[in-house]
Design a protein around this nucleic acid. Structure first.
Lengths: 213, 213
DNA sequence: TAGATTGTTAATCGATTAACAATC
DNA sequence: TAGATTGTTAATCGATTAACAATC
């Protein structure tokens, strides 16, 4: 499944739409939804909802709206969420631990959630060999072996800022194509690799601006 | 300090510039930097750097560039980072715990970091009364008393999605003006309240899209 | 002075919204 | 059929980039 280059702004909204549909589908298998209503719940205008979806095909019926269950399943195909995606997490500090626990719980409870942390890496000798929720902590040197073996395509970085770039470089070398970066560093990666950043202190500092007057 | 309404896109870049300046100022008290170089390190074009700064005043010298230390101090004023901002965290699960530890460490190690978690809330009877890094965990009902008393203006939400809206409503009622929301929920807040969201599964799902082809 | 870089205006680019014919 | 809502095109809005006079 491949489309002309879709803008990042569009792709960012698709998971939001999907979440709205997930919730509705839970209560009503055969629900219908209009772009108006979907937009409301997603915090987006109705025209934009239609335009976003139109990049990928025609999913609605004029005068009726969208079948929730059908649109949901199409969005899952578009977002590549139909088969399992294996994820590594590097840096098993308290944040890494929290994210791992959260992910394992979500993965086991929600059948349709296919993003799965399957390997942990940390170079602290006190952590190596331990397990978190049944997942073993490996030394970082094992990346070379484990990433290709397990077919890991995505990584979560919860390492100190000073190590993030080096770690990312190595992971890219062994085939990781997408990062969720919690380190306070701008990662430099080749153009085919994607990075999403969650930078706590950047966000806090930004919010501070709005506390004025 | 008040300016005409500055766009969100601009405000979002200011902390990025500040981080670059912080790093340079550490090594060289009297460094100069051009919009070119600042842009490079921030991942932004040089013209945009100049335009962003120009919203707030004239901080450079033609033919020379910007004095790092001076621009840094001006950006800190603009972002409202010069005095302490007190923050509450609600939901002391493993993620809340991790963020609290991280914040306390950063606050104590970095003199110029002024965002400070000073109160924790959780309704789990096993947690109430415990302390994390010296900060006591209160029942959520104490919000009414503690938020105004401590002058807390910002809150971090690490509660389950089902509770996030209710919790936010209460906090807004007692004076919280900005949220960093980790719950997988779109918060509805009055127009004078600002929300930054860090939504792990939304980001992972978005990244999955780029693993295709 | 000559070279460099700012602050700012005009041009471009891209994203969102409005409008409406098609049609369920 | 009449009413509603899609898919899509055109209009608008906003953000980024290019260009350059001012000036250090």
């Amino acid at each position: 499944m491949r489309w002309r280059k879709i803008s990042d702004a569009v792709v960012r909204r698709l998971p939001i739409y999907l979440r709205v549909l997930d919730e509705i589908a839970q209560n009503d298998e055969s629900a219908l939804i209009s772009s108006q209503e979907l937009g409301n719940k997603a915090g987006v205008g109705p025209a934009l909802v239609r335009k976003d979806l139109a990049w990928f095909g025609e999913f609605g019926k004029q005068g009726v709206g969208y079948e929730v269950e059908y649109l949901r399943s199409e969005l899952r195909k578009i977002l590549n969420l139909e088969s399992e995606i294996k994820v590594a997490l590097v840096g098993v500090g308290s944040l890494g631990l929290a994210l791992t626990r959260y992910n394992v719980k979500r993965y086991s409870e929600d059948d349709s959630f296919n993003l799965h942390i399957v390997a942990l890496f940390d170079d602290d000798p006190n952590k190596i060999g331990n397990t978190v929720e049944g997942i073993e902590i490996h030394p970082f040197s094992k990346v070379e072996e484990i990433i290709p073996q397990e077919g890991i395509q995505m990584a979560i970085l919860t390492v100190p800022g000073s190590e993030a770039q080096r770690v990312a470089d190595t992971l890219v070398k062994y085939g990781v194509k997408a990062f969720l970066n919690f380190a306070p560093t701008k990662l430099n990666v080749p153009p085919h690799v994607h990075v999403a950043s969650s930078d706590l202190s950047l966000e806090l500092q930004r919010l501070a601006y709005y506390l004025q007057d």
